[in-house]
Design a protein around this nucleic acid. Structure first.
Length: 882
RNA sequence: GGGCGCUUAGCUCAGGGGGAGAGCACUUCCUUGACGCGGAAGGGGUCAGAGGUUCAAAUCCUCUAGCGCCCACCA
């Protein structure tokens, strides 16, 4: 074994051995409930980013741990066709070749998308493998697989037939760049500094001496499509004007003034220009007053033929010209600064245009109700729990979902129109003749479905649904879903709704983990396009997959943000190296070893086994509750600060003591503790642990072909090792050793100089304890010999260590810098008396004595006694020095 | 307009009613037979501020400030 761990040499072969061993598990085991997880399918255009790295580590940690408990565990993997995102990529590629999708035509373009998928679709799968993710790679899914297409059609047809899917002419969110509709949650709102333009609209005939109304707008270009002006019915200013006629400037259209409760008299002028084809509120007003809906914009946000002289202009150019023309006509009354929220396309960030068009919708309220109940009554649990409120809030105010997209790449809407009789039907299989009139003038709807319409079926379509498939019954519902918070509504909520609808009310997953979002050091979202990203592949190159995984897990807490820290990866890489070297030490010292049970001969043995028992209980519990940061910290502290720093150091003397029995005992303990530690570490650091574990000479009963499928340490079995006495004893010894080391450091004693120290003990019991237990520790303090006695005198020229109620004298030749020693002791005295003062005050507080738990009082009394003792010792030392 | 999260050592962050912690950085020492991706010993904090609850508050409650985020038809 080399003296440092080289992840690049280890990871590839280890991963291949897992594949060869077929440990990723997709088989159905009768009578055993499996643990199944579906991966949030990355976009097929995508490559691994930090969010994936974090989320997939979480899932792999959970599933590897469960697999080790012996339960069938399966992690379904695949990719999403990602309608708009992929179409945009392919269009960009075409643009670079000087082509547009219209040059190719629909069929050829879709072929180009499939080619793209063939070329890039496995990129992210390979990156998941590099991370060590233990997915079922024998059964990789894609949201446009033939069987998946059947699932999508089945869902559409069922909902259509149930009246849950309908077509309607509505104001939707239109992206003029992608030239498609978007759902409400695909729009990202941003506050923008803009203006409120006040426009004067003249009346056709003056009414009661009034010859105009002034309206205010943030989008002046929409005035081309105004078909009425609305005021509040109670508004005294405008009462006489209701029913009057306005002549729309620039266009000359005569439009009425109507009264509508929607209008807020206190905003602006209290008069609203109404453009029913370009604003959802105006649409409603228009409906109520039977006003025309004039669409003044084309799909690319240029002004349409309805826009008179402005036809053909881009929306912002038109805005400029209209303002200029109104001003020239004396109709621009004023311009106020105004901050308002502007919607942007979540894929290309173009400003969204509210636009009137024919679209397909899903009626969500009936689907939402049972999905709300499922979370309310705990069948689905969110972690952290606070996300449930976010879910409830959205679900309780849910609005219908616009599912049609004017794209070519995606699941085509399975609705067929008969041109002969006007029949419209949804069908599982393409139809060529009208089921009503028999005509063959049939055409399919041109639009495709929202990507999320197919993504929502992921937890059951990936098991073969809607075909009768044993996998559906076996693997559905899944156990856990881990994801980023930004797709809570887009994806998670919809999976719960559709999952329950199509699986007899059965929820799609028990637990939902909402992991923190990864931000960079400046608190900006990590993004490739912003140049703020870090490439996980680079990180794995530098720190190893294990280093990256452990470093990420260290950073997972209940907070909603995670400022990514590369330093944590440095310490994690170092930790992997530490594991490697500690293991190397154990393996290099196995001469004469015979496999067998651990042997708790010494207090140190009992201590490390007790600490291991504690660790295993906490790690299991932490994983059960998804506290990944806590688990990583526990493992790090145990392995480094307890096992390496103390147990291994202590083992060195016993390995070389010449007593075969003692040597064998410590060898067995080293192997046992290392083995269990590697098992506990494996879910987070699968590669380095596997590489080492295969070389461990375990008893036959403990072996397995791979650590991946070795038994998870059962906290109940290790509980027998819990030994509070040994833990207390070793804590004291560690304190004494550290104290003596402190003296060495302070006085810069040569490392090789062996010390002869004297313990002054409080009684014979303590003297015997020192005599029996300290010998094993002496080497670690550089102590060559020691004596202990109740009334021993302090040797001349010695420094004093006060630790754990013991007084230890360290004689120093030529010592001592009395002033330095006195200063140090004075500082120690101040600290002790400060602490003691606080504690005594507390202990003399009657309220405390009356109300605090008795264990607390006992503990504080014991501590006060210790402090008082230590303080007395320090004061005696100080007196001695002066 | 409503809601959520954060504010703890120089930096990044854990902890979450009863002795202030880690990693990194810093200081001193160590070519000690696992590891310099290491070891030992240190320095460094009125736990954002103000009130309150409690015998006891970094921790619970209220308010304030700053930062970040999410929802909401904010002409």
């Amino acid at each position: 074994m080399s003296s440092s761990y080289d992840p690049n040499a280890v990871e590839g072969p280890i991963f291949e051995s897992w594949v060869a061993g077929n440990y990723f598990g997709s088989e159905i085991v009768d009578g055993v409930r499996p643990y199944s997880v579906v991966i949030p399918p990355p976009n097929v255009t995508g490559s691994l980013h930090m969010g994936h790295a974090l989320n997939n580590t979480i899932q792999d940690v959970v599933i590897r741990r469960i697999r080790m408990t012996g339960r069938p565990a399966r992690w379904v993997v695949g990719t999403d066709h990602a309608g708009i995102a992929t179409q945009n990529k392919v269009e960009q590629k075409l643009t670079a070749e000087g082509l547009s999708r219209y040059d190719l035509g629909r069929e050829k373009f879709v072929e180009a998308c499939w080619e793209w998928k063939a070329e890039y679709g496995s990129t992210i799968i390979n990156q998941l493998k590099a991370m060590g993710c233990s997915c079922d790679y024998d059964d990789i899914w894609f949201t446009m697989d033939p069987s998946y297409q059947k699932a999508v059609r089945r869902v559409f047809v069922d909902w259509f037939d149930a009246g849950l899917i309908y077509r309607g002419k509505r104001i939707i969110n239109w992206c003029p760049r992608c030239t498609t509709a978007l759902s409400d949650i695909e729009v990202e709102h941003e506050d923008v500094d803009s203006h409120l333009w006040h426009l004067r609209y003249p009346l056709k005939e003056p009414v009661a001496g009034i010859d105009h109304v002034i309206v205010a707008t943030t989008r002046p270009e929409t005035m081309l499509g105004d078909t009425c002006v609305a005021v509040h019915p109670e508004d005294e200013r405008y009462k006489d004007l209701i029913g009057a006629t306005v002549v729309l400037p620039l266009i000359g259209r005569e439009i009425p003034i109507v009264a509508d409760d929607y209008v807020d008299p206190s905003f602006g002028t209290g008069a609203v220009k109404v453009t029913p084809a370009h604003d959802p509120n105006d649409f409603e007003i228009g409906e109520r007053h039977d006003c025309a809906k004039i669409n003044v914009m084309n799909a690319d946000a240029t002004i349409s033929g309805e826009g008179g002289a402005y036809a053909g202009l881009d929306r912002y150019e038109a805005r400029k010209r209209i303002i200029a023309d109104l001003e020239a006509a004396g109709l621009l009354v004023g311009i106020d600064d105004h901050v308002h929220s502007v919607g942007h396309c979540y894929r290309c960030h173009t400003v969204i245009e509210p636009w009137l068009s024919d679209q397909w919708f899903v009626d969500m309220k009936p689907l939402a109700a049972p999905a709300i109940d499922a979370v309310r009554d705990g069948r689905v649990t969110f972690h952290p729990k606070r996300w449930e409120n976010v879910y409830f809030h959205w679900m309780e105010n849910i609005r219908d979902w616009c599912i049609s997209r004017q794209l070519w790449w995606g699941h085509r809407i399975p609705v067929f129109y008969c041109d002969a009789c006007g029949n419209m039907e949804a069908a599982l299989d393409d139809i060529t003749t009208c089921s009503k009139c028999g005509s063959s003038s049939i055409r399919q709807d041109e639009d495709v479905l929202d990507t999320w319409f197919s993504s929502q079926l992921w937890p059951f379509a990936t098991f073969g649904w809607p075909e009768p498939d044993p996998r559906v019954d076996y693997f559905y519902p899944t156990a856990m879903l881990s994801t980023a918070r930004d797709i809570l509504f887009l994806w998670v909520a919809r999976m719960i709704m559709s999952g329950m609808y199509f699986n007899e009310g059965q929820i799609p997953f028990d637990d939902v983990i909402i992991h923190p979002t990864v931000f960079n050091a400046e608190g900006k979202r990590m993004s490739k396009s912003l140049g703020t990203g870090v490439d996980p592949l680079d990180l794995m190159d530098h720190y190893g997959a294990d280093g990256m995984r452990f470093g990420l897990m260290l950073q997972v807490t209940g907070a909603q943000d995670l400022k990514f820290s590369e330093e944590k990866l440095v310490s994690s890489r170092n930790f992997a190296n530490k594991i490697w070297n500690a293991s190397r030490f154990v393996l290099m010292n196995l001469e004469g070893y015979e496999p067998g049970e651990p042997v708790a001969n010494t207090v140190a043995d009992r201590w490390i086994l007790s600490r291991l028992a504690d660790l295993s209980a906490r790690v299991s519990e932490g994983l059960d509750t998804y506290e990944f940061g806590e688990v990583a910290r526990l493992l790090y502290d145990f392995f480094w600060s307890e096992f390496c720093d103390w147990y291994i150091e202590l083992s060195k003397a016993r390995l070389n003591c010449g007593d075969a029995a003692s040597r064998l005992a410590v060898q067995r303990n080293l192997v046992f503790v290392l083995d269990r530690a590697l098992r506990l570490l494996h879910p987070i650091m699968p590669f380095v642990t596997e590489e080492i574990w295969r070389n461990l000479p375990l008893p036959e009963s403990e072996r397995a072909a791979s650590l991946m499928i070795a038994a998870w340490p059962d906290p109940a079995e290790l509980a027998g090792f819990v030994d509070e006495g040994a833990e207390r004893s070793v804590s004291r010894l560690i304190e004494v050793v550290s104290g003596i080391r402190g003296v060495r450091a302070r006085y810069q004693l040569p490392p090789k100089q062996q010390l002869e120290v004297v313990f002054k003990t409080a009684g014979d019991a303590e003297r015997e304890w020192v005599e029996s237990e300290f010998a094993a520790m002496a080497r670690l303090a550089g102590v060559g010999s020691f004596e202990a006695g109740v009334g021993v005198d302090k040797p001349a020229h010695s420094a004093t260590v006060i630790a754990s109620g013991l007084e230890v004298y360290v004689p120093l030749e030529g010592l001592v810098d009395f002033d330095a020693e006195a200063a140090r002791l004075a500082k120690e005295r101040d600290r002790l008396s400060g602490d003691l003062g606080k504690l005594e005050k507390k202990l003399s507080n009657e309220g405390f004595l009356a109300k605090a738990a008795s264990e607390i009082i006992e503990k504080d009394r014991a501590r006060a006694a210790e402090l008082a003792e230590a303080l007395a010792l320090v004061e005696a030392q100080l007196a001695d020095l002066s």
